[in-house]
């Protein structure tokens, strides 16, 4: 078997020092296969987002290794070229599409800027690609010419996805990317993500607290708590037959028929 697209080995992140030192991520290891889809579930403070930030290079790990196609990327890139190359390989979509877009930049320009950073393209080619990206995520010409304020939350999240895909990444990290959306819009975006995966073969690292969404999107899942992995495996196995008490608690906490929050709170 060839090397996985992304391998994380004993990744650790500590913040602060001395008495205030806290471990946000402790000894986390997992692999993401090419074209695969890996979910990270956990509650706030479990270290999901810190793990993602280390993978895209926004945080420097305190220990462990990050390997992309077998190449060590634990340390910050040395040159601008290497940094750009890393940025091209791994892209991220954040939770809040209201703060993650530049409110003074037109959507089309926003996509063109990313294309300009990563590829040498003629003006016509750039325009063609921007339109193509718009088509991929369901944004028309009028929306590409508008500012973020003219778009709804769902449309903005499409922009964020298109912007991430503009770099033609091999890995797309989605950090609670559908959590803030209305249910009807969430379903549209989840379908869109599955289309894009079929069409482009991009791998997903999907971070969410929502088990149902994880079930829909991810082949494999890891469950994190207090910075450590408590359970990992195929999504269906983890959710249908959880072995760890915490995974069971997470699953049972989801409201449904005959839900008894009092019995959960006691356990």
């Amino acid at each position: 078997m060839s090397a996985p697209l992304l391998a994380v080995e004993n990744l650790t992140k500590r913040f602060g020092s001395g008495r205030t030192e806290t471990t946000a991520v402790a000894d986390v290891s997992f692999e993401l296969a090419s074209g695969g889809s890996l979910g990270i579930v956990g509650e706030s403070g479990s270290g999901k987002t810190t793990t993602a930030r280390m993978i895209i290079g926004l945080e420097k790990p305190s220990g462990g290794r990050i390997l992309f196609r077998g190449e060590d990327r634990t340390q910050p890139a040395r040159t601008a070229k290497a940094l750009r190359e890393r940025g091209r390989n791994v892209q991220i979509v954040f939770q809040d599409p209201y703060t993650s877009l530049d409110r003074r930049q037109r959507i089309g320009d926003c996509l063109a800027e990313v294309l300009g950073v990563h590829f040498k393209l003629s003006r016509d080619e750039t325009k063609r690609r921007v339109r193509g990206l718009g088509e991929l995520v369901g944004l028309d010409e009028r929306q590409l010419n508008s500012l973020p304020k003219a778009l709804s939350g769902g449309q903005r999240q499409r922009v964020a996805i298109a912007r991430a895909l503009a770099a033609e990444p091999e890995i797309l990290i989605l950090d609670e990317a559908v959590s803030a959306l209305d249910v009807s819009i969430q379903a549209q975006i989840l379908n869109l993500l599955s289309d894009i995966r079929d069409e482009r073969g991009v791998s997903y690292l999907f971070i969410s607290h929502d088990l149902a969404v994880i079930r829909q999107v991810c082949d494999d899942t890891i469950v994190m708590r207090h910075g450590a992995v408590v359970e990992q495996g195929a999504t269906a196995a983890v959710l249908d037959d959880p072995h760890h008490a915490y995974t069971r608690l997470l699953r049972d906490s989801v409201p449904r028929d005959g839900w008894d929050p009092a019995s959960l709170a006691r356990s």
Partner: peptide, 24 residues
């Protein structure tokens, strides 16, 4: 009914979610 159907299920992965077109 459309809201009920659009929501993914924890115990089942749909081939495709029946999304509601348009926005609220």
């Amino acid at each position: 009914a459309a809201l009920v159907q659009a929501r993914p299920e924890i115990g089942h992965r749909a081939r495709r979610l029946p999304a509601i077109p348009g926005h609220p």
